[in-house]
Amino acid sequence: MNLLHQIFVEPFLFMGEAPDLLLQVLWEGFVSGILYALIALGFVLIFKASGVFNFAQGIMVVFAALTLVGFYAMGVPAILSLALAIGVMFLLAVTVERVVLRPLVNQPDIILFMATFGITYFLIGFGELIFGGEPKQMITSQLMLPEGRTNLEIAGGFVTIQHIDIAAAAIAVVMIATLGIFFSKTRIGRALRAVADSHKAALSVGISLNQIWVTVWFAAGIVALVTGIMWGARSDVSFALQIIAFKALPVLILGGFTSIPGAIVGGLIIGFGEKIAEFYWGPLVGGGIESWFAYIIALIFLVFRPQGLFGEKIIERI
C-alpha cells in the first residue's frame, strides 16, 4: 500500500508542492528533447535516402565538433573554422559516397548497415589520430553563442534558464524547419523519397543516386556539426559524446525512421519522459533510470505501433 502511495500519489503531491522544480524539470526535458531530435534528424535523413540506419551518426557528431575546435586551435578564426568544418563534412559526404556507398549499390540493407560500422571505426581512429583523445572545450563565445544564465523567479521559487539552451532550442527549431521544407517541397526531396523506395526504380527514371547520397550525407553532416556544437557547449567535446547519439534510437522508434516531424515529437516525448521519470520516480529505485527509461517507452510503442507515430505503415503484398 505504501509502495502504491509512493508511486501514484507522492510524485504528484511533490509536483504541486514545488511547482518551480516541475517547471525546471520540464524546461530541462524540453532542451534535452530538442537536442535528441537534432541527433535523430541526422539518422532520419540518411534512412530516408538509403533505408539504412547510420550507425556512424554519433561519431559524425564528435568528428564535426572536433574539426571545428581543431581548426580554431590552429589559429583559424572561429567563423572561418565553422566554414572549414562544413567543408570537411562535405568532403566526408563525397568520400563516403565514392568509397563506401557507390560500390554497394543494390546490395542488401544489412550490407550498407555494416558499412556504417566501418565508417564509425574509421572515424574514431582517424579522429583520435588527428585530434588526440583528450576532451576539448567548445568555442562557445567565439561563435557568438550566448553564455551565462537567468534565474526566473516563478511559483515561489526560481527556474534557471541557461542562455546556451535557449540558443540550442532556437537553432534546432530553425534547422528542423529548414530541412523539413527542403526535403518535402523541393525536387531533391521528392527524388530522395524515390531513392528510399527503390534504388533501381529511381535510377530508371533518371535520378542521380550519387548526387542524392552526397546531398543527404552532407545534410546529415551539418546536422551533426550543429549537434556537436550544442552538446559540446553543455559539456565538452570528447569521444564519449558519441554514446549520447544512441539516445536517438528510442526517439526514432517513437517518431518513425522516415519522419522529420516524428523526430521532433519523438525527441520531445523522450526528453520530457526521461527527465520527469528520473526526477519523480527515480528515487524509488535508487536513481539512474534515465539511461533505460527511454527504451521502455520505445518498447511500449513498438508493441502497439511498430512503425512509430509518424512512420509509414509497411504493407507487403504476398
Binding site: 530541462e28 564519449a240 559524446l241 544512441f246 528520473e278 535508487g286 539512474g288 534515465e290
Partner: peptide
C-alpha cells in the same frame, strides 16, 4: 544520498543535477 551516473550519460548529467537541487 547516492547519485549514480551511467557511463553513457557522463556528458548528460542534467537529470542528476536536478535531483541534487531537489
Amino acid at each position: 544520498k547516492l547519485y549514480p551516473v551511467p557511463a553513457q550519460d557522463m556528458q548528460n548529467q542534467s537529470s542528476v543535477w536536478l535531483n541534487i537541487r531537489r
